[in-house]
Design a protein around this nucleic acid. Structure first.
Length: 492
DNA sequence: ATGTCC
């Protein structure tokens, strides 16, 4: 059923009156997709108002739409193809610390402990569990949810204001461009019965990782040997052989509540108006962007996105302070902060459309109109792709060929084993020994087996898919030295 | 992803 178009590009036809789904992946990668993943992609493609769907090499089954897909619509917004964790993102902090300085595992252990005092991991964890974090009261929480990384918010949290220029989007507003519209909606939410305390408790999670596949990881940067790609990395501020810190997290409980509230509200709207769910799936609810329901969704998405943005920036500042506990005077700069769960308006096929990326990363090449005036106009922006600590993570740059995938690439390696299968099939001592054999330590007594390197697809095959499809090239590889994750007990 | 049930 797949029609091969090139070395790592295929199409999946869905009928005469719809353009086919674009599938990115080498032969082994495309063969790894399950039938349910394809079915979710087809459901998404046939849903109302949708103009394009792209399936990336890390695709697997998700909520309504696959994780690892891009859905484009000129007119409609879809909460499912944004995802439950609104603006789940990656960020990279580059320090000027030579790799040799953290060769000793005892030094790494001290840094891990310093970070743990400031940035908690685990579900429900917030400032209460981090004695050296920041205090986020109701007023500051309200402000950052409505303003994002504004100058005032960054100053109050002690974050360098220059970092806002290294964000895919530093601030999200209501669709009318107004902060006041968001403030009115958040104010209204806070006046609902029993909601205020819950919202305020979520503000206090600012500066925390959460659980699941979220993590913080110290890396050694290894720039490409290719002179052009190496020069791009140096222009971005990457430093070969020096320590960087990669983070993966999102909008925590605050964004989760907003997303679930939207699924509930839209489902109720469908039921009260008799509208049919696409493919009968309530997880594929939608609204016209211009409708009252669509506008409310975009407001809530913006507030979740603002929380995620400031969460990442604060984590990076707290991580830098932790490094300074052990290495006073060490410098750190944010290289980039980029999401893989967000809908943005972008020019696609000659018109402005809503590009929903769910487990997919924006990939604008040099000269893209939305990069004009940014630090990345002449190079394209950094693409931050995590895989696993053992096999390293990758920093890529988009090529003009990325237009075939709606200027998107994958967001990581993608799951090979379900969490249940990973826990059943993988042996705990093998998982822990594997990391030690690669000189990687972690904050966990037992590394979570469902997050083990072998629970994920072969990262090199995934990267080969991206390169062979002509979407992006690798600027640098990151080699992990230590990892912070939500620790699982040894025998769960 | 998520106080794993909103």
């Amino acid at each position: 059923m797949l029609q091969v178009q090139g070395p790592a590009i295929a199409t999946l036809p869905v009928g005469d009156d719809h353009s086919p789904i674009t599938v990115i992946g080498t032969d082994p990668i495309r063969e790894s997709f399950g039938s349910q993943t394809f079915q979710q992609a087809i459901n998404s493609r046939l849903a109302p108002g949708v103009s394009r769907v792209v399936l990336n090499p890390d695709a697997h089954v998700g909520y309504g739409a696959p994780v690892g897909c891009v859905m484009v619509s000129p007119s409609h917004v879809y909460p499912g193809p944004v995802g439950v964790d609104i603006k789940c993102s990656m960020s990279l902090l580059q320090t000027n610390l030579p790799a040799e300085e953290i060769a000793d595992p005892k030094v790494r252990r001290r840094i891990i402990q310093a970070i743990a005092k400031r940035v908690p991991t685990g579900a429900g964890r917030g400032q209460r569990h981090a004695p050296k974090s920041r205090s986020v009261d109701a007023a500051l929480g309200f402000q950052l949810a409505t303003e994002g990384a504004s100058k005032s918010v960054l100053k109050k949290l002690g974050i360098p204001k220059s970092w806002a220029t290294r964000c895919e989007d530093a601030s999200h507003t209501a669709p009318d461009g107004s902060v006041d519209t968001l403030a009115a909606r958040l104010d209204w939410m806070g006046r609902q019965r029993d909601k205020r305390d819950r919202i305020e408790s979520k503000y206090r999670q600012l500066g925390s990782y959460g659980g699941g596949n979220h993590f913080g990881e110290a890396e050694v940067v290894s720039l490409s040997q290719d002179p052009e790609l190496r020069a791009i990395g140096e222009q971005w501020g990457l430093r070969d052989g020096q320590v960087a810190f990669l983070s993966h997290c999102g909008s925590r409980g605050f964004g989760h509540d907003l997303a679930m509230g939207q699924f509930r509200a839209m489902k109720a709207h469908f039921q009260s108006t008799g509208l049919a769910f696409p493919a009968g799936d309530p997880q594929l609810v939608y609204a016209e962007a211009a409708s009252p329901e669509g506008q409310k969704y975009l407001c809530d998405m913006a507030m979740g996105a603002n929380f995620a943005t400031v969460n990442h920036l604060l984590i990076n500042q707290l991580v830098l302070e932790s490094f300074r506990d052990v290495f006073p005077g060490v410098q750190g700069e944010l290289i980039y902060f980029i999401s893989h769960n967000i809908a943005r308006q972008e020019p696609i096929d000659g018109k402005l459309q809503w590009v929903h990326r769910k487990g997919a990363t924006r990939a604008f090449p040099a000269g893209h109109e939305q990069l004009v005036g940014t630090d990345f106009e002449s190079t394209g922006h950094p693409i931050l792709l995590p895989s696993n600590p053992r096999d390293g993570s990758s920093i890529m740059v988009a090529r003009p060929g990325a237009s075939v995938s709606a200027f998107s690439v994958n967001h990581g390696a993608g799951r090979r084993l379900s969490r249940t299968k990973a826990k059943k099939q993988l042996n705990q001592s093998n998982v822990d020994q594997d990391l030690l054999d690669h000189d990687i330590i972690s904050n966990c007594r037992a590394y979570p087996r469902d997050e083990a390197p072998d629970a994920y697809k072969d990262f090199n095959e995934v990267l080969a898919s991206v390169r062979h499809a002509g979407l992006a090239d690798e600027v640098a590889r990151l080699k992990a030295k230590f990892v912070l994750k939500d620790g699982a007990p040894a025998d769960d």
